[in-house]
């Protein structure tokens, strides 16, 4: 599984959505991505990539695209 597939899978599984909904998806755009769902997503991504997010990055993780940008940071080292 590629990193992009792992990333997408975390969203799809956590929020029970389809791949075509991912582009442009923002925090609280859908009912499932509320504050509770946000922590489930973070936990799923930490498992998928074997990382631990800093709290500031959890706060900044405001969209599907922003999440990729955060994961690409040096401390997480995820390449898409």
């Amino acid at each position: 599984m590629t990193n992009l597939e792992k990333y997408n899978d975390a969203f799809i599984t956590t929020f029970e959505i389809t791949e075509d909904q991912l582009a442009g998806l923002k925090y609280q755009d859908i009912q499932a991505w509320d504050s509770v769902g946000h922590m489930s997503l973070i936990a799923a991504l930490e498992d998928a990539f074997d990382i631990m997010f800093d709290t500031d990055d959890i706060i900044d993780f405001s969209s599907y695209e922003k999440g990729k940008e955060i994961l690409s940071k040096e401390e997480y080292g995820v390449k898409f």
Partner: peptide, 10 residues
């Protein structure tokens, strides 16, 4: 607790 709770959430 923040870190460990995320393991528990998963």
């Amino acid at each position: 607790t923040q870190y460990i709770s995320r393991i528990m959430i998963s």
